[in-house]
Design a protein around this nucleic acid. Structure first.
Lengths: 155, 155
DNA sequence: TATTGTTATACTCTATAACTATA
DNA sequence: TATAGTTATAGAGTATAACAATA
């Protein structure tokens, strides 16, 4: 029994904030003010679900409506996405990437990914394998906010 | 050649923000206002380096002096740490955990670690192995802000 | 009445610029 | 002059509470 869930948790708790900080700094560092991580995530989400509503974005990101509303404001002002009323249900919004938004997202993604790849280059093949497997497992577990949200119960 | 650094980077970029969000929410969720992740990290750092100066904390966390100064303000007000002038060099501060600070840190750590362990419990043994190995590698790479900071060059 | 979003307000994190105090 | 910290200011991310509009 080599690794308990508790040990895994301790390791995750040590490593993840370090990596996150590096990602944040790298994204912010890019010219053209650059995107914050949450902004970037909104763009990525909209790229996968064109025309999503504000509620859907909030749900997907695990944030409140006012938070998303304000962030969307900023992205609309920067012409990275459009915010239109859904004709079928006038309460709902339809959010879509603009071409500029799509390109910003791609650029930010590529730059950050390149930066990370550079930092990860020293890893041995076996470590890369382990990393891929571990990240996939983490996405499985933490990628579904609706699942075991602890505080919100099972609805 | 199973996993390129680029693939690793993509996986990290997908997984890490998800996990980070979960950690943040869990820490914030704890009663007694609870600690933010940066506050928690300051307490952990001081636990390992009792009596560190503000500059040392800033260096260790990769943040600026004003940022740390303000966060320390809040922690001092909450009686989680003490801020004293170093008698040997009156410009320097000596930061130390109070008993309350130590206990807050322990509590936050235990609760978050328990939460994560619960989420990670479904992992197979091999996945846990991979996770441990991967996290250790990430700490190696991203745990030394002085190293390859990209923007700041080499010293 | 219930749902979707926005506005108002507040707090934390973070940075840069300008300052004070000590060395 | 150089170093350690603080203050002033600003902007992003986040939340809760109160509101408006639509269904």
């Amino acid at each position: 029994m080599p690794a308990s869930a508790a040990q895994c948790a301790r390791q995750v708790l040590e490593a993840v904030p370090l990596v996150m900080r590096a990602i944040r700094r790298e994204m912010r560092r890019q010219r053209k003010p650059g995107l914050s991580v949450p902004q970037f995530r909104i763009l990525v989400m909209l790229n996968r679900h064109q025309g999503a509503s504000l509620s859907e974005v909030a749900e997907h990101m695990g944030l409140t409506l006012p938070s998303i509303s304000k962030m969307v404001d900023g992205l609309v002002v920067r012409d990275l996405l459009t915010r239109e009323t859904d004709p079928g249900d006038r309460r709902r919004l339809t959010l879509s990437l603009t071409p500029a938004g799509h390109s910003s997202m791609q650029t930010a993604y590529a730059a950050t990914q390149t930066y990370l790849a550079g930092r990860l280059e020293t890893l041995a093949a076996s470590e890369r394998e382990a990393l891929i497997q571990a990240m996939a497992a983490l996405v499985d577990i933490f990628g579904t906010p609706a699942a075991g949200k602890t505080a919100c119960g099972k609805k």
